[in-house]
Design a protein around this nucleic acid. Sequence first.
DNA 1: ATAAACTTTCATTTGTTTTTGAAAGTTTAA
DNA 2: TTAAACTTTCAAAAACAAATGAAAGTTTAT
Lengths: 168, 168
Amino acid sequence: MDLAEGKLKFIEAWGKLGSEWGINRTMAQVHALLLISPEALTTEEIMETLSISRGNANMTLRDLINWGLVEKHHKAGERKEYFFAEKDTWTIARQVAAERKKRELDPVIKVLNELAAIEGDEKDPEYKTFKTSVSDINKLAKNVNKTLETMLKAEENWFWGSIFKIFK
Amino acid sequence: MDLAEGKLKFIEAWGKLGSEWGINRTMAQVHALLLISPEALTTEEIMETLSISRGNANMTLRDLINWGLVEKHHKAGERKEYFFAEKDTWTIARQVAAERKKRELDPVIKVLNELAAIEGDEKDPEYKTFKTSVSDINKLAKNVNKTLETMLKAEENWFWGSIFKIFK
DNA sequence: ATAAACTTTCATTTGTTTTTGAAAGTTTAA
DNA sequence: TTAAACTTTCAAAAACAAATGAAAGTTTAT
């Protein structure tokens, strides 16, 4: 396999993984393309390489910027905007974790807290099962939350280092 | 909020979370319903409660069984099949992690290894950037993999226990 | 062997998400 | 101020994923 094939395969694999984890396939592909590009790329180049429309490219790039994974660069004496991806893996993982925590975990924890507060007849099996499930999941969610917060705070952390044997 | 409202809200929240993480919404909802049911339920009851068709219920239940999250129960002297969910949160997390690792992480690691083996000109920035990104992600993937394997092996592990403060 | 009770399948339909591309908007240079 | 260069928007179309339900299949009791 040569470099050109490898690039395509990488973009494809990253896109597939993204879509399995609830991230738009195109967004993951654009991200992959920028990850393996030494230089910042223009919208045109991205459209061309991935065969996507201008509108799609524009919206996807905006999303990636909102996720903190991509930034706009300007080149002196040029009108065009160039896009460039953060390439440090630890930073990418942190950004994604932070974004999903905010969008998904936080709202779920809110609901779980409300549900955990529901009162009822301790002798009713319906109530007891509900209560137990909700409170167990609530505990898990809170622990995941705490772990994520630690991870997000860590600039580069001994704790995660010891778990993941981080490289960088 | 009373118990009946709470149940609906739980099912809804679980379904939404599932769909954000690439798990079919209905599948997550059926799982939620079974989680808060003290008794095993029939297909009929599940169809009725969630307003879904027989075919959908059947396929969803089969998927849940394949994921190891639900099991069929039989009641003496009855023809009908009853469905019952594993309720231990740690076990659920383990099953889901195992399944997704197998379906998603393992194939990605395979591709990354192939890509990491590509050779090229070290002076070509295209090649160098590709190489570095692939190898960094490969390292991360391998570490995630190792961590998951540890987690899956642990019947009940002091290390993860201390991280998640697991109950069980 | 048969028919009732129950389960599974799968071609269609329905619903959701993503993409397109033309039009509108903005910025810059002259 | 104007027009060219470039970016953004968004309604409509296409692509994709999930759900339906009638028909086919299976099991059990007699």
